[in-house]
Write a protein that binds this DNA or RNA. Structure first.
Length: 924
RNA sequence: GCCGGGAUGGUGGAAUAGGUAGACACGCAAGACUUAAAAUCUUGUGGCCAUCUGGCCGUGCGGGUUCGAUUCCCGCUCCUGGUACCA
């Protein structure tokens, strides 16, 4: 083999890796472990595009680097294979989603294998596989059978809660439960019917059935997330969406809010991502205050973080959606207030967003009583109050809250200052100031006033200190077919778990993947979708789990993928522990990453695993955007003008397939083949070439800018693709895909190959000792690679390889002493060529079993340094001096230099700055 | 609005405990080889001025600190990601 034949080499080594099981991982307590994980893909019908492998290549490089460093590496891949696209496709074609999914997975797998990843394919998981989702269902059952105990600060079995109820009722139980949970004694509990008891337990279970308001899309027959709704219409298909109350399964993730918040401090994630999670959880510490309504039995409950300003309350504001608001309206105000409510409801989110400055509201006519001073304060309706947060009601303190201030100013309401400070610039929060005009709170600091008022509220039974989270409990059901069935049946309208021995509860066959005629989910079409116990046969739950169920624990399954008696052996999860490096997109910041952390903490609580944070270190790769190319057609003709000339004609731009454009030059023959209808097109060229325009857009089929990695591999090979994707720029940066620089990377690999094949392409290496320069070139690269691996700076490593190979080429180096470590160095990036060279060097074992070359500082030590000599901050001369010189000696040498003297004009410098080994600067 | 990230040649990007700006690569130009093209190799390539030695300008804009600023500070502009009145 004389030439660098990437096709032959890459196929050969991918085959050998597969046959020898090179990347099979196994528990080995003697070696340190390294768990390197990619966010697994949803296998879409479009196949993999060049953006997908970016993160996978980075994690593959780290994995292979860790192998060379002697780690036992777990580096798996799998598929998040439940999802809406397959179901939509099924609705359109009648093809079973399992079939489509299977086909898509085969395509993805083939594409991934072509890139030569060091995945242990034996560990592949698929969330839609019954052997996998058996355990997703199992985890659901554990959640159903648990409650969150606030004293133990962890999840405990619901059976121990029942035991406590039997002994003492629920008065002293400190547990996370629904707000409306009634109090009962032990005697009452025992007197309840089974149904009543079950009903009560639902208030405590970590997964529970409750009425929630959801985005219901009748046309799709399903509930959509906020993300999936745009301007009141579904993102897919544009069908109308309405807010509707429905019985839904929820996960009590709020029970873990505080631990999810605190856990972030320990994680090596980027600050922006942690910050996003903190904001999402949104912890506020404050108090709940109950206001009585004058002349009514109604109470208004508000949540406030500033109870210290309670004497400054001059009105209450209710959300327009609140039922209470409607009830409080007096006859005198009815017309205006109800009109306002109606108007607020009609305002779309979009309107509210673009119209933040408009202040609107309506007076209800009702008055509330301030419990601290008995004052009567007006109750208003305002759309700046959100129904979904806190209690949907606020106590307004215009003097110390900007929104309240604007509202009060607009409607001429009183503004009463209760914190010391100047009101010249409108309201001010006054945190840390002294409380004034506030009865017996006057003179206290904010903190003291808070403590004292909360004590007063609790004493009077009209409020309490409260921690409020922005985060809601997570809705856990979808009215869809292609998801995990819930292992739940209904008896007397109450949910019960099926028995564990009956898992997995396999998704039934249906005739159509649409909702039933009476609006039930697709599973309503399944025959015999029932569960039989000793007491009878009962209907099973018709909803399925949401997309995030299966992805919330897959990282554990990789550790023990074919286990049939548990989701993973404890021995194995203990050995592999947390993920050491997780690479994926930042779009999962608040969804997947939060749910996974929640489930891991839960599994930790029940003793199923020994870690309570799944992902120790995370890197978020930037999305690869598409780069579209354009041709310019003269309007009404079949003539196309090159970019530089387009303005001299009346043209319209047209997307052209980026795959027939190279370096922004159009291949005319391919263009005609691409668009047979334009086969007779004429071209007006520049310098004999057709230059295309370019623009950065999202990668999409309709913009003809999708680049398939297979095409790149076909043309340049997988090693080039891998190197090039890394060379493109910093991993975390968003960047458009373009192939403009790929030739340089390909050229580099051929140069590398030629180092080992110096004469007439024959493999030759010399066993002579390497020269000083050769070793220096090598060790510079070793040093750089070590540093770059620590910083995840992949692009600069590729540069340093290029520099090294360029230097070795000009030195004519073909010494084994240099070329062996060089092959190892490059092997994480370009594994195929490295394996081939390693084999040619006479090694029988895979290069992945080699050890990373040790960096030796001695090879980089210089005796001389070329000092830049700056005069008044400008570079004027260079001086090659031994590094052993002292500062005075350097100064003497610098002043003696002819160039320097010319600039000094015989004057002595005012100041001399010398940094040995760096710079000489003279000030004149 | 708020919270992140960013702005460096024709292009992708290097270099920040403050110390020679533009590594590496693409593109472009010239040359060699070739009947020719491709490939390969050599040289040049931030801008302006200059016959040359060389000079001036230059890291989004305006200031500041410093012997010295792409890097630090203050004030802006624009791009980009997230988020949406959270009481």
């Amino acid at each position: 083999m004389a030439e660098y034949n990437f096709r032959e080499i890459e196929q050969k080594w991918q085959q050998i890796w597969k046959e020898k099981g090179t990347f099979k991982a196994a528990v080995d307590p003697k070696r340190p472990k390294f768990y390197s994980l990619d966010m697994f893909p949803y296998p879409s019908g479009a196949g993999l595009h060049v953006g997908h492998p970016l993160g996978y290549i980075a994690s593959d490089i780290i994995s292979r680097f860790k192998l060379l460093k002697g780690f036992n590496v777990l580096h798996p891949m799998g598929y998040d294979s439940f999802g809406l696209p397959a179901e939509q496709y099924a609705i359109q074609t009648g093809q079973h989603p399992a079939l489509t999914t299977e086909q898509n997975i085969s395509r993805y797998t083939e594409q991934l294998k072509n890139i030569g990843f060091a995945f242990d394919w034996d560990r592949e998981v698929r969330t839609s596989d019954p052997a996998y989702y058996k355990w997703t269902q199992w985890i659901f059952m554990q959640l159903f059978s648990s409650y969150y105990d606030l004293e133990a600060n962890k999840a405990l079995p619901i059976s121990s809660l029942v035991a406590r109820f039997e002994q003492e009722g629920n008065a002293r139980v400190k547990a996370v439960c629904d707000e409306d949970t009634p109090a009962f004694t032990a005697a009452q509990w025992k007197a309840f019917s089974t149904n009543e008891q079950q009903q009560l337990l639902l208030h405590y279970r970590l997964t529970f059935l409750a009425e929630t308001t959801v985005n219901w899309c009748g046309a799709l027959g399903t509930v959509l997330s906020n993300d999936e709704v745009k301007d009141g219409f579904s993102e897919r298909g544009g069908h109308p969406v309405e807010r509707k109350k429905m019985m839904q399964w929820s996960m009590r993730i709020t029970a873990y809010a505080d631990r999810l918040l605190k856990g972030l401090d320990q994680l090596a994630w980027s600050e922006p991502i942690k910050e996003m999670q903190r904001n999402w959880i949104g912890k506020s510490i404050g108090a709940e205050v109950v206001f009585a309504v004058k002349g009514s039995n109604q109470k208004i409950q508000v949540f406030t973080t500033r109870v210290d300003t309670i004497y400054g309350v001059t009105y209450l504001a209710l959300a327009p959606e609140s039922d209470l608001a409607a009830e409080l309206i007096t006859d005198a105000q009815r017309a205006t207030a109800e009109a306002y409510i109606q108007q607020a409801k009609n305002r779309s989110e979009r309107d509210r967003m673009s119209d933040v400055k408009t202040i609107s509201g309506a007076f209800t006519g009702a008055y509330a009583i301030n419990p601290f001073n008995g004052e009567e304060i007006p109750v208003w309706i305002a759309d700046y109050v959100l129904a979904g947060y806190g209690t949907g009601a606020v106590m307004a303190v215009p003097a110390h809250d900007e929104r309240d201030y604007n509202f009060a100013t607009h409607f001429g309401l009183e503004i009463r200052q209760v914190i010391e400070g100047s009101m010249e610039n409108g309201s001010f929060p006054g945190k840390g100031g002294i409380v004034i005009n506030s009865g017996n709170l006057t003179g206290l600091t904010m903190k003291e006033a808070m403590t004292q008022s909360i004590a007063f509220l609790e004493e009077q039974g009209i409020g309490r200190g409260k921690v409020q989270y922005r985060m809601r409990d997570a809705i856990f059901t979808r009215q869809r077919y292609w998801g995990e069935p819930l292992p739940v049946y209904f008896k007397d309208g109450l949910p019960y778990l099926i028995e564990e021995k009956d898992l997995p509860l396999v998704l039934p066959e249906v005739d159509k993947y649409l909702p039933t005629e009476d609006g039930a989910p697709p599973l309503g079409r399944a025959k015999d979708w029932t569960y039989t116990t000793e007491t009878g046969t009962y209907p099973l739950e018709l909803s399925t789990m949401p997309g995030w169920a299966g992805s919330s624990w897959y990282f554990f399954r990789y550790m023990d993928p074919s286990n049939t008696h548990s989701f993973a052996d404890k021995d194995k999860t203990d050995y592999w522990g947390a993920v050491d490096l997780y690479i994926g997109g930042s779009e999962h910041a608040t969804g997947h990453l939060l749910y996974s952390r929640f489930w891991t903490k839960f599994l930790y609580d029940i003793g199923a695993v020994s870690i309570d944070e799944p992902f120790q270190k995370m890197i978020n790769q930037g999305m690869i955007q598409g780069r579209s190319n354009f041709v310019y057609r003269i309007k009404g003709s079949n003539t196309f003008v090159s970019l530089g000339l387009k303005d001299t004609y009346d043209t319209s731009a047209m997307h052209v397939d980026v795959n027939i454009v190279h370096n922004d030059q159009l291949n005319l023959e391919k263009f005609k083949a691409w668009r047979p209808d334009l086969a007779n097109a004429e071209f007006i060229l520049e310098d004999g070439k057709y230059h295309c325009g370019a623009e950065v857009e999202k990668m999409s089929k309709s913009k003809y800018n999708v680049v398939n990695p297979d095409d790149i591999i076909e043309r340049y090979g997988a090693d080039t693709l891998r190197l090039y994707e890394m060379f493109l720029g910093p991993l975390e940066q968003f960047k458009p895909w373009n192939t403009n620089g790929i030739d340089g990377v390909y050229k580099f690999l051929r140069k590398l190959w030629n180092l080992y094949h110096p004469q007439n392409g024959a493999f030759t290496v010399s066993d002579l000792p390497a020269s000083k320069e050769e070793l220096k070139a090598l060790h510079k690269a070793i040093k750089k690679m070590e540093e770059d691996m620590a910083n995840f700076s992949f692009n600069t490593s590729v540069s340093s390889f290029m520099i090294c190979v360029n230097e070795l080429t000009s030195l004519g180096c073909n010494k084994r002493e240099v070329l062996e470590p060089l092959a190892i160095l490059i092997s994480p990036y370009a594994p195929h060529i490295a394996e081939e060279l390693w084999a040619l060097l006479g090694h029988g074992e895979s290069i992945t079993k080699a050890r990373f070359p040790a960096f030796q500082e001695a090879h980089l030590v210089e005796s001389n340094f070329e000092y830049p000599v700056m005069i008044n901050g400008k570079l004027r001369a260079k001086l090659d001096l031994p590094l052993t010189l002292t500062v005075p000696e350097i100064e003497k040498a610098a002043l003696a230099d002819a160039q320097v003297q010319k600039w000094l004009e015989d004057k002595a410098p005012k100041k001399v700055i010398i940094v040995p080994g760096k710079i000489v600067n003279l000030v004149v």
